[in-house]
Each structure stands twice: as structure tokens, then as C-alpha cells.
């Protein structure tokens, strides 16, 4: 599992989530430096790459799948990445993003709420935003996920534990660690 310079090609992705998981990821403080020595960041909201590269070793995905763009992206990511890790409750279970699933026309309802009911000027649903899926879904309902790190957000400590285990080729043991919420 080695990229250039003996480092692991590493990507992070932000789908329908609040970015809290990315925050928690960065929250590893100086410990992140240990990690940085082993990985090569190739795609992330933390940097400027626009296109998801091929041959990624490990991808960490935050957020549920809420719209068609994300649906296509996650399929592409799955194709191009060896190990895919769902991070945070939104990616793992759907979390709040899936609240709309219980409504009849959930997607319509939130669009209305966001662009019409709460609009102060010129209320209208824009047509250039990606089409919302009828139901938001956690990652593993759409693609195969290799590892899960639940939590809202997961603690920096847990993220580090799981990543270290995976990078060292071990299977993380989630008993006593996988806390939702």
C-alpha cells in the first residue's frame, strides 16, 4: 500500500455532512504529524484538487449521500480507492441528513423550506443545484465500505486509532469504541 516516496496516497471527501468530522480529523493536534509522515494527501476539501485521482490507497468519506452528484462521485471514489472508510454518523448511518426520509416528499420539503419559506428576497428553488435524491442514504447502502468510524463527530482519538490500525495493516477492533451520537 505505497504511493510515491513510500507514502500512502490518502484522500478525504466531504459529502452531506457538517464538516465536523473533518474538524475532528484535524483535531488530532500534533499527533497528526505522525500521520503526515506516512501519507500523501492527494484529494481533500482541505486542499485544491478538483478531480478525484486514480489509485488512491485510503479514502476517508464524511457525510451521507444526499444528491445525484454525490451519488456519482461516491461510485467513482469507490472505483479508484483501495480502502474506503466512512467517518461520522452521517456517512455511517445517514444521521440527520436522513431525517427527511420519513417525510412523503422529503426532498421537496427541504428545498421548499430552504429556498422559499425562509427566503427574504426572491424566493425560488434554483435549478442549478444538484438534484436531491428522494432519500438520503448512508454510504454502505450504495457502495461497499471497508471500515466505519461512527460518532457525531467521532473523537480525534478514535479516528487516529482506526487509521493507525489500518495503515499498519491491522483490523481495528471497534468493541467498546463505536459510539453513535
Amino acid at each position: 500500500m505505497m504511493g510515491e516516496l513510500g507514502k500512502i496516497n490518502f484522500a478525504t471527501v466531504w459529502l452531506s455532512g457538517c464538516s465536523g468530522c473533518h474538524m475532528s480529523f484535524l483535531d488530532q493536534d500534533e499527533q497528526i504529524l505522525d500521520l503526515a509522515q506516512k501519507i500523501q494527501l492527494v484529494y481533500s476539501p482541505l486542499m485544491d484538487a478538483k478531480i478525484f485521482p486514480e489509485n488512491v490507497d485510503v479514502t476517508v468519506v464524511e457525510g451521507a449521500i444526499g444528491n445525484e452528484e454525490q451519488l456519482n462521485l461516491i461510485k467513482k471514489i469507490r472505483k479508484h480507492t483501495k480502502i474506503l472508510i466512512a467517518i461520522g454518523d452521517c456517512a455511517v448511518t445517514g444521521n440527520m441528513v436522513t431525517l427527511r426520509n420519513a417525510l412523503d416528499d422529503g426532498a421537496g420539503a427541504i428545498l421548499k423550506r430552504a429556498y422559499i419559506e425562509t427566503a427574504t428576497k426572491n424566493p425560488q428553488i434554483p435549478n442549478d443545484v444538484p438534484k436531491l435524491l428522494e432519500r438520503a442514504r448512508p454510504l454502505n447502502e450504495v457502495i461497499k465500505v471497508d471500515y466505519f468510524i461512527p460518532g457525531c463527530p467521532p473523537s480525534a482519538h478514535l479516528i487516529k486509532y482506526v487509521l493507525t490500525e489500518i495503515i499498519s495493516g491491522r483490523t481495528p477492533n471497534m468493541e467498546g469504541k463505536a459510539k453513535y451520537g
Partner: peptide
């Protein structure tokens, strides 16, 4: 929630009911 943590239920293997 505590039991799920204890047993390492780190994801749901079946789709949820959304009623």
C-alpha cells in the same frame, strides 16, 4: 447506545425503516 458501543456495532448492515 451503550450496548451498541460495547459490542462494536459500528454500522448497520440492513437498511433502516423510515416510517
Amino acid at each position: 447506545q451503550d450496548l451498541a458501543k460495547e459490542f462494536g456495532v459500528d454500522h448497520l448492515r440492513v437498511e433502516r425503516e423510515w416510517t
